[in-house]
Amino acid sequence: KLLSSIEQACDICRLKKLKCSKEKPKCAKCLKNNWECRYSPKTKRSPLTRAHLTEVESRLERLE
């Protein structure tokens, strides 16, 4: 599967780190437990900047 097509777990399953069936409108866990089942939009991760990478590398060197 391509990364862009990976389905996201519902908010509660993601928060509780449960295996989500990803069914809509309610996944199996939410249906069974009568929880409100919501699927928040995916958040875009910002790409690493060179400055951040350099900072992490220098912190790693100090720890070694």
Score class of each variant (00 low, 15 high):
residue 1 K to A: 13
residue 1 K to P: 15
residue 1 K to R: 11
residue 1 K to C: 15
residue 2 L to P: 15
residue 2 L to G: 15
residue 2 L to H: 14
residue 3 L to Y: 13
residue 3 L to N: 13
residue 3 L to W: 10
residue 3 L to R: 09
residue 4 S to Y: 12
residue 4 S to H: 12
residue 4 S to G: 08
residue 4 S to P: 11
residue 5 S to P: 10
residue 5 S to Q: 10
residue 5 S to K: 09
residue 6 I to T: 12
residue 6 I to W: 09
residue 6 I to G: 10
residue 6 I to P: 12
residue 6 I to C: 13
residue 6 I to K: 09
residue 6 I to M: 14
residue 7 E to Q: 10
residue 8 Q to G: 06
residue 8 Q to L: 11
residue 8 Q to Y: 12
residue 8 Q to S: 13
residue 8 Q to I: 08
residue 9 A to Q: 08
residue 9 A to F: 01
residue 9 A to L: 01
residue 9 A to H: 06
residue 10 C to S: 00
residue 10 C to L: 00
residue 10 C to N: 07
residue 11 D to M: 05
residue 11 D to F: 01
residue 11 D to Y: 06
residue 11 D to N: 04
residue 12 I to P: 12
residue 12 I to Q: 11
residue 12 I to H: 13
residue 12 I to Y: 15
residue 12 I to S: 07
residue 13 C to Y: 07
residue 13 C to R: 05
residue 13 C to T: 01
residue 14 R to T: 06
residue 14 R to N: 01
residue 14 R to M: 03
residue 14 R to S: 06
residue 14 R to K: 09
residue 14 R to C: 03
residue 14 R to G: 01
residue 14 R to E: 01
residue 14 R to H: 04
residue 14 R to Y: 07
residue 15 L to C: 12
residue 15 L to R: 07
residue 15 L to G: 14
residue 15 L to F: 11
residue 15 L to Y: 15
residue 16 K to V: 00
residue 16 K to D: 03
residue 16 K to R: 05
residue 16 K to C: 07
residue 17 K to Y: 06
residue 17 K to G: 00
residue 17 K to F: 01
residue 17 K to I: 05
residue 18 L to D: 01
residue 18 L to M: 15
residue 18 L to Y: 07
residue 18 L to F: 00
residue 18 L to S: 11
residue 18 L to N: 12
residue 18 L to T: 07
residue 19 K to H: 06
residue 19 K to D: 03
residue 19 K to V: 05
residue 19 K to A: 07
residue 19 K to I: 05
residue 19 K to S: 06
residue 20 C to Y: 05
residue 20 C to N: 01
residue 20 C to S: 05
residue 20 C to L: 08
residue 20 C to F: 07
residue 21 S to Q: 02
residue 21 S to L: 03
residue 22 K to H: 09
residue 22 K to A: 03
residue 22 K to W: 04
residue 23 E to C: 12
residue 23 E to R: 08
residue 23 E to V: 11
residue 24 K to T: 15
residue 24 K to G: 12
residue 24 K to F: 15
residue 24 K to N: 15
residue 24 K to D: 10
residue 24 K to A: 14
residue 25 P to G: 10
residue 25 P to S: 10
residue 25 P to T: 07
residue 25 P to V: 03
residue 25 P to R: 01
residue 25 P to N: 04
residue 26 K to R: 15
residue 26 K to C: 13
residue 26 K to W: 12
residue 26 K to V: 11
residue 26 K to M: 13
residue 27 C to P: 07
residue 27 C to F: 07
residue 27 C to D: 07
residue 27 C to S: 08
residue 27 C to G: 01
residue 28 A to S: 08
residue 28 A to V: 14
residue 28 A to Y: 11
residue 28 A to M: 14
residue 28 A to T: 12
residue 28 A to H: 14
residue 28 A to E: 13
residue 28 A to G: 11
residue 29 K to G: 04
residue 29 K to A: 05
residue 29 K to P: 04
residue 29 K to M: 05
residue 29 K to N: 04
residue 30 C to K: 00
residue 30 C to S: 00
residue 30 C to P: 02
residue 30 C to R: 04
residue 30 C to G: 07
residue 31 L to Y: 15
residue 31 L to V: 13
residue 32 K to V: 09
residue 32 K to E: 08
residue 32 K to S: 09
residue 33 N to C: 11
residue 33 N to S: 15
residue 33 N to K: 10
residue 33 N to M: 09
residue 33 N to P: 02
residue 34 N to V: 11
residue 34 N to S: 11
residue 34 N to Y: 11
residue 35 W to S: 14
residue 35 W to Q: 14
residue 35 W to V: 14
residue 35 W to E: 09
residue 35 W to R: 14
residue 35 W to H: 12
residue 36 E to P: 14
residue 36 E to K: 10
residue 36 E to A: 13
residue 36 E to N: 14
residue 37 C to R: 04
residue 37 C to S: 04
residue 37 C to H: 03
residue 37 C to Q: 09
residue 37 C to K: 01
residue 37 C to A: 07
residue 38 R to C: 15
residue 38 R to I: 15
residue 38 R to W: 11
residue 38 R to L: 15
residue 38 R to M: 15
residue 38 R to K: 12
residue 39 Y to R: 05
residue 39 Y to W: 07
residue 39 Y to H: 07
residue 39 Y to E: 06
residue 40 S to C: 03
residue 40 S to R: 06
residue 40 S to F: 05
residue 40 S to D: 02
residue 40 S to K: 03
residue 40 S to H: 02
residue 40 S to P: 01
residue 41 P to V: 07
residue 41 P to A: 08
residue 41 P to E: 08
residue 42 K to H: 09
residue 42 K to C: 07
residue 42 K to E: 05
residue 42 K to D: 05
residue 43 T to Y: 00
residue 43 T to N: 07
residue 44 K to F: 08
residue 44 K to C: 09
residue 44 K to L: 14
residue 44 K to P: 14
residue 44 K to G: 01
residue 44 K to T: 10
residue 45 R to F: 00
residue 45 R to W: 02
residue 45 R to T: 05
residue 45 R to P: 03
residue 46 S to R: 01
residue 46 S to V: 02
residue 46 S to F: 02
residue 46 S to M: 05
residue 46 S to L: 00
residue 46 S to G: 01
residue 46 S to W: 02
residue 47 P to I: 02
residue 47 P to Y: 06
residue 47 P to W: 07
residue 47 P to C: 04
residue 47 P to A: 06
residue 47 P to H: 04
residue 47 P to T: 00
residue 47 P to R: 07
residue 48 L to G: 07
residue 48 L to R: 04
residue 48 L to Q: 04
residue 48 L to F: 06
residue 48 L to H: 01
residue 49 T to W: 05
residue 49 T to N: 01
residue 49 T to F: 04
residue 49 T to M: 06
residue 50 R to K: 03
residue 50 R to M: 08
residue 50 R to C: 00
residue 50 R to W: 04
residue 51 A to E: 04
residue 51 A to Y: 08
residue 51 A to V: 15
residue 51 A to D: 04
residue 51 A to T: 06
residue 51 A to N: 12
residue 52 H to C: 05
residue 52 H to E: 08
residue 53 L to C: 10
residue 53 L to R: 10
residue 53 L to I: 04
residue 53 L to M: 15
residue 54 T to F: 05
residue 54 T to V: 07
residue 54 T to S: 12
residue 54 T to R: 02
residue 54 T to P: 06
residue 54 T to H: 04
residue 55 E to Q: 11
residue 55 E to A: 13
residue 55 E to Y: 14
residue 55 E to N: 12
residue 55 E to H: 10
residue 55 E to K: 09
residue 56 V to L: 10
residue 56 V to Y: 09
residue 56 V to K: 02
residue 57 E to K: 01
residue 57 E to L: 02
residue 57 E to M: 03
residue 57 E to F: 08
residue 57 E to G: 00
residue 58 S to P: 04
residue 58 S to W: 13
residue 58 S to K: 12
residue 58 S to G: 14
residue 58 S to Y: 14
residue 59 R to P: 03
residue 59 R to I: 03
residue 59 R to Q: 11
residue 59 R to C: 04
residue 60 L to K: 10
residue 60 L to E: 01
residue 60 L to P: 03
residue 60 L to S: 07
residue 60 L to G: 05
residue 60 L to W: 00
residue 60 L to C: 14
residue 61 E to G: 14
residue 61 E to D: 13
residue 61 E to R: 12
residue 61 E to Y: 12
residue 61 E to S: 11
residue 61 E to L: 15
residue 62 R to M: 13
residue 63 L to I: 14
residue 63 L to C: 10
residue 63 L to R: 09
residue 63 L to N: 03
residue 63 L to Y: 08
residue 63 L to K: 01
residue 64 E to Q: 14
residue 64 E to D: 09
residue 64 E to T: 15
residue 64 E to L: 09
residue 64 E to K: 08
residue 64 E to G: 06
